[in-house]
């Protein structure tokens, strides 16, 4: 818990520094804001902590930039082509991650930035996904994302 608070203070202080610049007077506001943000974050998340593997994170970022590029190009292409190729519909994707924990929430948010998929509802054991083209390999893409997220997070003490 104490270690968690420490790293959160460092994190929020870094954010404040990026925003407010290095004028010392800004810390009259910054210090209380940083401390209360760190305290609230620690209270909110409590004992659920997840460590992130640095290597996994790096790999994930590369994958994410590539995938969001494809996602943008894909949807822009569909929007601009005279005959829009859309075969939309819902797909229920069974979750392997624990739906109550942070990685699953992260998963649901990233889904919306990948090519052709949009997360609609995060259920207990599955995610409802809207696909823009049901003939694309949606399921395989979601499996790859889930696998990469699982590889990035190391389950914390609470798991």
């Amino acid at each position: 818990m104490a270690v968690g608070v420490f790293w959160r203070v460092v994190f929020f202080a870094a954010l404040w520094w990026i925003w407010a610049g290095d004028k010392p007077a800004s810390w009259w506001f910054g210090a209380p804001a940083v401390l209360s943000a760190a305290f609230m974050a620690a209270r909110r998340v409590g004992d659920e902590s997840h460590r992130v593997r640095m290597r996994g994170l790096g790999m994930f970022l590369i994958y994410f930039v590539r995938a969001s590029f494809q996602g943008g190009v894909d949807v822009a292409w569909r929007a601009m082509s005279p005959r829009m190729r859309l075969r939309p519909g819902f797909i229920e994707y069974p979750l392997r991650l624990d739906a109550r924990r942070a990685p699953a929430v992260f998963f649901a948010n990233i889904i919306s930035l990948l090519p052709g998929t949009l997360s609609v509802e995060l259920g207990e054991t599955s995610v409802m996904v809207h696909a823009i083209d049901l003939e694309a390999p949606v399921e395989a893409q979601l499996q790859e994302l889930e696998r990469r997220i699982a590889a990035m997070f190391v389950a914390g003490e609470g798991a």
Binding site: V73, V75, L113, L118
Partner: peptide, 13 residues
Amino acid sequence: YTRLHALTKADNL
């Protein structure tokens, strides 16, 4: 739903 696809991904990129 399809409009959301367009908005989110294109804006992100």
